[in-house]
Nucleic acid binder design. Structure first.
Length: 448
DNA sequence: AATCAAATAT
DNA sequence: AATATTTGAT
């Protein structure tokens, strides 16, 4: 068509969400005639799935539903999070619905059939947003505070903001969005940017288009959610892909989860809170060392052994999986890998000087001990209780009445007695739950 | 072909 | 230091 957008901005990617094939064909033709890149999906959930993979940079989403349902709005929320321009297209015009859509971040609520002019000039939304971002970026460059209020702030989450004041955990969604803005800024500044990461890594460096992709801030909260998901998935099935699904955090990608998981597995993650008390920990070479030690990669599911593990754990040194020929079964991976198995949780068992802060001690009543034991997972998910290790240690010390300095043996006993089930299926790294209560176990094993 | 986990880069 | 990206498996 005569008036496309080429030459004005680079490639505009449009996702069309529409279950009705006729509409889709028409729309695709129309969009393509104006040089948009079009991706079609049938449902909102499909779209969401695609978005969470985050593999493609999407500029616009046209949510074309016949009667907007919950999913459409869920998708909209995700779009907002990812800062994607969203259009609602509906068979009938409903003012209330329109209002709701706009309130939740849609750019337009339109009625079918779609006015061609809108399609024709759709790119202007994209450009406009880019310009705004650029402005915002300039504004925030001198202040190190990083001003967030660029672009249209669709305030879909007033709740979150309130929440963030209570707990000092910044809602991850917000965080995520901010970062995305930054990223987009970078992209904007290089219009010629092309998605060619596969071709040449150096090119990307030169391009400086994507210096840093959206950076998820792993708050204690988000981490807790991860841990919860892990439990939900079960010991054997903790693969990033599934985790992402279960967590259902808009915008969170598999890669990000994997990356975080990696950190957790090697017990190298500290929550922001914990980080603040930046205590030095002596034996920190362990990351590289443990990684070397475990250079034989094995994936696979956990053995589904439920008995007799706690005993071994209690010993703390002999790992259950080092015993061959149990009835261990692996959903993935060979069966001959027993010798190669290694225990991620325990790789990090280098001697640490106990660095766990016991600051939350007073918050936990001994009544809660049972609750925690009975329902550990819930407590993990509890924002205020992001440190199960602390909690448990605390309770134990309540019970034992021991001083916090010389309690390591007892702690070990206590912890494993009550949480042994958590470890009963220790197996290959891929499937293991990361150790969420790291420091405590460091303590536990420190005398080994 | 997908996606894991290690290794490396930012 | 924390997270993302790349690389090399499976």
């Amino acid at each position: 068509m005569a008036i496309g957008y080429y030459g004005i901005i680079d490639e505009v990617r449009v996702v069309l969400v529409d279950p009705e094939i006729e509409n889709v064909t028409k729309m695709v033709d129309l969009l393509k005639s104006y040089d948009y890149e079009v991706i079609t999906v049938r449902t909102s959930s499909e779209a969401m799935e695609m978005l969470s993979k985050g593999e493609k940079k999407i500029d616009v989403i046209i949510i074309s539903v016949h009667s907007p349902n919950l999913d459409s709005f869920k998708l909209l929320a995700q779009d907002v999070t990812l800062d994607i321009i969203s259009l609602f297209v509906c068979d009938e015009y409903n003012e209330l619905l329109a209002k709701k859509a706009l309130k939740e971040g849609a750019c337009l609520f339109l009625q079918r059939p779609l006015n061609e002019e809108i399609v024709k000039y759709l790119w202007q939304f994209v450009l406009r947003r880019k310009i705004e971002r650029e402005k915002a970026k300039k504004g925030s460059e001198d202040g190190d505070k990083m001003i967030v209020n660029d672009v249209d702030t669709h305030n879909m989450d007033g709740n979150n903001e309130e929440l963030s004041k209570e707990t000092n955990d910044v809602p991850n969604i917000e965080e995520h969005r901010n970062n995305i803005h930054e990223v987009e800024d970078n992209i904007v500044s290089n219009e010629k940017y092309k998605w060619r990461r596969k071709n040449n890594r150096k090119d990307i460096k030169k391009d400086k288009a994507i210096k840093q992709k959206d950076c998820v801030k792993w708050t204690a909260d988000l981490h807790a959610k991860l841990m919860k998901s892990l439990e939900q998935l079960g010991e054997g099935k903790c693969y990033p892909k599934d985790i992402v699904e279960v967590m259902d955090v808009p915008g969170l990608t598999r890669m990000q989860v994997a990356s975080h998981l990696q950190k957790c597995r090697f017990n190298n993650w500290r929550s922001p809170e914990e980080r603040k008390s930046s205590r030095r920990i002596s034996g920190q070479e362990s990351l590289s060392e443990s990684q070397q030690r475990s250079s034989n990669t094995k994936y696979g599911t956990m053995p589904h052994l439920q008995n007799n593990i706690p005993n071994q754990i209690e010993r703390g040194l002999d790992f259950p999986f080092s015993t061959p020929n149990t009835s261990n079964t692996f959903a993935r991976g060979e069966s001959s890998i027993q010798e190669k198995l290694y225990p991620p949780q325990f790789q990090e068992i280098q001697t640490h000087s106990g660095s766990t802060t016991m600051s939350d001690a007073e918050n936990v009543t001994s009544d809660e001990v049972e609750t925690i034991n009975a329902n550990f997972q819930q407590h993990i998910a509890e924002p205020n209780m992001s440190y199960p290790s602390n909690i448990i240690a605390t309770n134990k010390s309540d019970i034992e009445g021991s001083d916090s300095n010389e309690r390591e043996d007892c702690d070990a006993y206590y912890n494993f007695n009550h949480m042994g089930y958590f470890f009963q299926n220790i197996g290959p790294p891929g499937a293991n739950l990361p150790n969420s209560y790291d420091s405590e176990f460091d303590q536990v094993y420190s005398d080994a």
